[in-house]
Design a protein around this nucleic acid. Sequence first.
RNA 1: AGAGGAGUGGCAGAGUGGUCGAAUGCGGCGGUCUUGAAAACCGUUGUACCGCGAGGUACCGGGGGUUCGAAUCCCUCCUCCUCUGCCA
Length: 424
Amino acid sequence: MLQVTYIRENKDQVIAGLGKRKFANAEDVINEVLELDDLRKSTQQKHDEAQSESNALSKEIGTLMKAGKKDEAEEIKQKTADLKVQVKDHGERLTQYESDLKALLYKIPNVPNNDVPEGAGENDNVTVEQHGDVPELFEGALPHWELIKKYDIIDFELGNKITGAGFPVYRGKGARLQRSLVNYFLDKAVEAGYMEVQPPILINEESGYGTGQLPDKDGQMYFVREENFYLIPTAEVPITNMYRDVIVNSDDLPIKHVGFTPCFRREAGSWGAHVRGLNRLHQFDKVEIVEIHHPDDSYAALERMCNHVKGLLESLNLPYRVLNLCGADLSFTSAQTFDMEVFSAAQQKWLEVSSVSNFETYQANRLKLRCKGKDNKSFFLHTLNGSALALPRILAAILENNQTEDGIKIPEVLVPYTGFDSIN
RNA sequence: AGAGGAGUGGCAGAGUGGUCGAAUGCGGCGGUCUUGAAAACCGUUGUACCGCGAGGUACCGGGGGUUCGAAUCCCUCCUCCUCUGCCA
């Protein structure tokens, strides 16, 4: 979340930034934050003062008791009664203001950075780069949902039976291809200096708040009632939360992790007839990269992360474009996001396969993720993450783009992983 | 899952109702000494909030309670260890 001191010092800029992402009533909300913070401060002053007095009297009582002056001690005890009420009263108000303030801040998204384009929706995202030629398919080429049936590599019906819609079963070469992609992506990330981690895929409430999925995305995550755990919507959550309540040694920066996990999303409300095949699932696999940086380095890191993702796509010969997301399309916690989309030839559609974001201090503030400077003062670090990559849509694009009349050609770099060079 | 034990500063470890934010040791940082290093010695060494400042408040696993006063007593939750059970 945003820091109140930052809001206070950059009020107009914050309001303008929130306006850019079409956050309603930005000015009113920001004013409310500042008013609540003022109340919180003045109330704490009163509370601390009363507490201080009360502490002093208690100390005095202790001294008197030790000296055996019981009567005098009793006398002072009477005086503490009134203070006690004051402390309690101010304390309750303080707690209330604090929780109100926090609740309000939780609902305020990150401020977009200056390079984020203006815009009202996804149509205003700016294409900053396009790479690779869109393949010409032969007559009779099929969308991936037909291909998977034809070659019997993914079974949606079976998934329906076992679980429900959006939980496909990968079979035979389909399963092997997916596993190959996972291994390939992990290997490339480790090669690029990321330390591999295998995090839990269920998270507690605190972690959900740490990276900003809660309270914003409550209802989009699956919930395990028995334990109050959420199923992760992305590995970003457990991996970034490894650094919750951590003061990082500056020598350990930057921190770079890669992790492979399944991801679970309820996608409530977004399910429709236009979402077919692998385009949107309730469970899917993803390799995620997460980085933690000194604030001065984070945008250079964002660029390097994008380059890593682009390199993966190029090595798979997938045509892609890079979008600089506009204010309205930015995710809640992000200060800037680049989406990578591959072109899926049979569907004639761009599919988002990666989203690379810099959250600046927004998550770090919630996580209490800090670093100590030379002056011994601590400051919030910047967190970043990106998909590298999300599996199903990559799979869909490979299937569609690489299809021939004789079968599906496996990209060269994957053949050492799959052990076969075509699916037929 | 059942029984028992335990959770204190970066680590180890004292502290069972009152000047305890917390002894002591190790580690870290600064210094003296030294050609340099080690040793020795001296000093220093948590976080957050409020305050222009002096200073104040809170934090001894989390939350709640008793008390004028809680690291210390009570309740509850969490985690770890030992034994028993179960299981990949």
